[in-house]
Write a protein that binds this DNA or RNA. Structure first.
Lengths: 212, 212
DNA sequence: CCGGTTCCGTGACAAATGTTACATGGCCCC
DNA sequence: GGGGCCATGTAACATTTGTCACGGAACCGG
């Protein structure tokens, strides 16, 4: 799709100045990506930084045994800090990014990311804000993993998920949750059952309804 | 102490251009900080970004119960990414930074950090490299906490420590280790004893000698 | 040398998490 | 309706981690 200034103005919440919008319209690439597709996998190089207009992207961290734990989600108006550092240092990705819900994004070529930093203060601000948000995300994840027990982490996970999809009924299997939290299916089933007994949620096949 | 261009040239490994060194000499503040002092605590504001010339600084993350887990160390030529984001967004610190070994650093006033970004490409590079390093540190920590068991984490912890102090005999108590890893002293004692039986290390009062 | 303090070792038990094994039940497709 | 697949439930057991209780050893200051 061709990017226009008006479209960008609306979708980017007017957080960028006009000249910058022109540049984005000229060099940015609009993309629709459907749920399940990978934006980046470990070891790949990135040549553009995605700004997410709408949807949600799941950032995961793999280990050597093939497990893959959830780090955090990217949502509207978020950009990926990993891709920023990867681009600017031409480093390989160390994470996996997979589209969770159908997503619209604008891909900014790496050389522009750098160039605009000095030309547009709103861009510089955006870049640093992005770093800050990702740092906060990571810290929150670290907190949970270090200080909380699994049942608390599970509950936090479900709430985040419900919030991100904007509904109270989650379409997910116990197995998927187990992968995201880097544990086993049986453990999750056990804890979920416990939460159900406590009236926090209701379990159905392939679905979990949050009650509180 | 008064900063001179020559001093900076030598201590900063010549990674900055001359004009920038002049600026740093003019506005940077040289500081010696002795082991045990706090550079920043949660809730405080930072008005300068430290560049560490020599020594080591421990970055920790507190939780509500008063526990405080180790995130990572800063060493020579490192800068603190937290302080970067905190400064640029005038946010409160979310971490604790305490000097582990006597440290020399240069404090850069926050407005300069921003101003130099566009004027000096080596500075811009430095800032982004800093972000990247801190991200990598955090990811490594996340990896350990998510995927590894305590005995592996403990061993990794000891190795990092040995590397950072450059010697094979660590001066540390079981209690301190337990705090850094957010667990209890007894657990650490037990695991250490096990490692000793396996010939990995030797235990002494207030000291641990790494053998491998 | 004595008394107090800090550090360490350790057994016994509790709680949390991981693993194995199998049963059940829904759902899809023919 | 029957067969097969997938998701879930669950018991039983293993391992890991956390907690409590206590004793002894090393060190330190008088």
């Amino acid at each position: 799709m061709k990017l226009t200034n008006e479209f960008l103005q609306e979708r980017l919440n007017g957080q960028f100045e006009h000249l910058l919008l022109d540049e984005i319209a000229k060099t940015g690439q609009y993309k629709r990506v459907s749920a399940g597709s990978y934006l980046i996998r470990p070891g790949e190089y990135i040549r553009s930084v995605p700004i997410i207009l709408h949807g949600s992207v799941k950032i995961m961290r793999p280990d050597k045994e093939g497990r893959e734990a959830l780090l955090y989600y990217l949502g509207g108006m978020d950009a990926c800090a990993m891709s920023l550092t990867c681009c600017l240092g031409s480093k390989q990705s160390e994470i996996t990014a997979v589209v969770e819900e159908d997503t619209e994004l604008i891909a900014i070529p790496v050389d522009k990311v750098d160039e605009w930093m000095c030309r547009f203060s709103t861009w510089k601000q955006f870049v640093f804000q992005t770093y800050q948000k990702r740092f906060d995300n990571l810290l929150a994840t670290v907190d949970e993993v270090i200080f909380q027990k699994l049942d608390e982490r599970l509950l936090a996970y479900l709430h985040k998920k419900a919030q991100s999809c904007g509904c109270r009924v989650l379409s997910i299997t116990h197995e998927e949750i187990a992968q995201d939290l880097a544990t086993s299916r049986e453990v999750i089933s056990r804890l979920l059952k416990q939460l159900e007994r406590n009236g926090v949620l209701k379990l159905m096949r392939n679905k979990i309804e949050m009650l509180s």
